[in-house]
């Protein structure tokens, strides 16, 4: 089907996407939905359950998505709503699973890299939900403050202040070492601060 970019007067209702196109958008969004869900739910399998629930919700609500609007923001809203509607149930009770974290953190090649991400994930879990979602959406997900405000259903100023509070809180947590620790933990608080300082040095041009 030819995709035409028609410029219509703003109040003309846009068409819903054809099912196949909608599905393609969903497939493209899945990696990002999982990343967002991971930061909300903390536990990997809970996060994937959350993402799967959100996919099914999105599919049944697909008539409500308008072609031309931001698909990722739309489906993130569903992930988020799903997270909060399930909160009463179980998402927050799942324990940190160190073994699973070790298995799934595959990205950075260096051992330090793995420790740092592991530690950051745990620090993130110590933030209040509203701050955590705000800093992930803006700081990692690439959403503007306005888009994040739409996803979270709050004012732009509220998102800004949540992001800023989240940044300070993360800095404080990472400096003292995350509280959520495991028996096999490899990073002690003092080392944690050193890791941050080493990274600061490596990222600061000219020292």
């Amino acid at each position: 089907m030819a995709r035409e970019e028609t410029v219509e007067s703003g109040d003309a209702p846009a068409e819903p996407l054809p099912a196949s196109e909608f599905k393609r958008e969903m497939a493209e969004a899945i990696p990002y939905m999982r990343a967002f869900a991971r930061s909300l739910a903390g536990n990997d399998s809970a996060a994937d359950d959350l993402t799967q629930d959100a996919l099914i919700k999105a599919w049944s609500a697909r008539q409500r998505f308008r072609a031309g609007s931001n698909f990722r923001a739309w489906i993130f809203t569903i992930v988020r709503n799903q997270f909060y509607s399930n909160c009463r149930r179980s998402w927050r009770q799942v324990a940190w699973d160190q073994e699973q974290a070790d298995r799934t953190l595959t990205g950075p090649s260096s051992m330090n890299g793995v420790l740092e991400l592991d530690e950051t994930r745990r620090a993130l879990l110590e933030l209040p939900d509203d701050q955590r979602e705000a800093i992930i959406l803006v700081g990692a997900g690439g959403f503007s403050y306005e888009e994040a405000a739409n996803i979270c259903g709050c004012a732009v100023g509220t998102v800004k202040s949540r992001v800023s509070r989240a940044r300070s809180a993360l800095a404080a947590i990472l400096e003292s070492g995350p509280r959520q620790r495991s028996a096999t933990d490899k990073v002690r608080p003092s080392e944690s601060a050193n890791l941050i300082m080493a990274e600061v040095k490596s990222l600061t041009p000219g020292g």
Binding site: I30, P31, Y32, T120, R121, I135, A140, L170, T204
Partner: peptide, 22 residues
């Protein structure tokens, strides 16, 4: 600088999952 590091870590954490694809 510290905030930059934390930002980079958050991004790395997020991208780590994104890279896993579908």
């Amino acid at each position: 600088s510290r905030q930059r590091v934390i930002g980079a870590r958050l991004q790395a954490m997020y991208d780590d999952v994104v890279r896993q694809g579908v």
